[in-house]
Amino acid sequence: MNRSPLDWALRLAVVAVVAFLVLPAVVVVIAGFNDRAILTFPPQAFSLKWFERALTYDDFRHGFRNGLIVMLWASSIALTVGAAFAYALHRYDFALKHVLESVLMSSLIIPHFTIGLGLLMLASQMGFGRTFAVVVFCHVVIVLPFVIRSVYISLQNLDQRLELAAASLGAPPWKVLVTIVLPLLAPGLISGWLFAAILSFNEFTGSLFVTSQATQTLPVAMYNYVREYADPTLAALSAIYIVITATLLTVANFYLGLGKVLNVDHAH
C-alpha cells in the first residue's frame, strides 16, 4: 500500500505526541533503578535499593496508609452524595437547578489550592484543625464533579421505561431501585468510584493545605521528602505509583466498556 506524505506526517505527529506524554514517565521510571544516590539519566548501574527505601521509608508508609484511608472515605462519600445529586439533576426539574449544578461542578474551575486554603481557614475557625475529616471533606469536594458526571452519563443511558415496566409489573420504588436501577448503573457507579479513588490518591495541591504531619497523604509526604533529599527514591516511588494507577484505570476501563454493552438493549 502506498502512503501519502500527509499520511506519514500524521503518523509522525501521533508518535511525537505519544512520546511527549510518555517520555517523562519513562525517564523517571528508569531513573528509579539508578545505583547512585543522585537523580541522573541515564543510570550507570542498576539497583533496586531505591525501591526498597521507597517501600520502607516511614513517612511514605504513613502517607500511603493515610492516603488509602482518605481515598476510601472520600471516594465512597463522593459516590453516595454524587449519585444522589446526579439522580436529582437528571430526573427532576426544580428551582435553582442550574445554580446547584454550577456549585457542584465548581471545583473543576476553582484552583485546588483555593479549596484547600479555604477549608483550612474554615476548619480552624470552627475548631476542627487539620483532622482527617477535613482532608476527606476537601477530597470529596474535589472529586465530586467527576463522580456526578460519571453517574449522570449512566443515567442518560438508562431507559426510564425500564423503571415504568418494572413498576407496572408490581415492583414498589425501592425494589425498582435495587433490581433495575442499581444493577444497570453499576458500571457507571464502579467507574465513578474508581476515578474518584485515583484522583483522591493523587491529589496534592489541596491536601498540602489541610494535612498535618499526622494526616499527610503520600503526595504530600513525597513533596516534603524532595525538599530534603534528591536521591532516586521518589523516582522509584513514581514507578510504583504509575503501576498502581494504571492497574486501577484498566479496571475502570473494563467496567466502562462493560457498561456500554449493558446499556445497549437493542440487539439489532
Partner: peptide, 28 residues
C-alpha cells in the same frame, strides 16, 4: 400507585431488562 394496579404494559421499544435473562424478565 402503578405497582398496585395489576396492569400489563408492552412498550414501543419493549423495555426488556437488559441485565436479566428472558426467563427472569418474564418471571419478574
Amino acid at each position: 400507585p402503578a405497582y398496585r394496579r395489576d396492569v400489563g404494559i408492552v412498550f414501543q421499544n419493549y423495555a426488556l431488562f437488559p441485565h436479566m435473562t428472558v426467563a427472569k424478565n418474564v418471571g419478574y
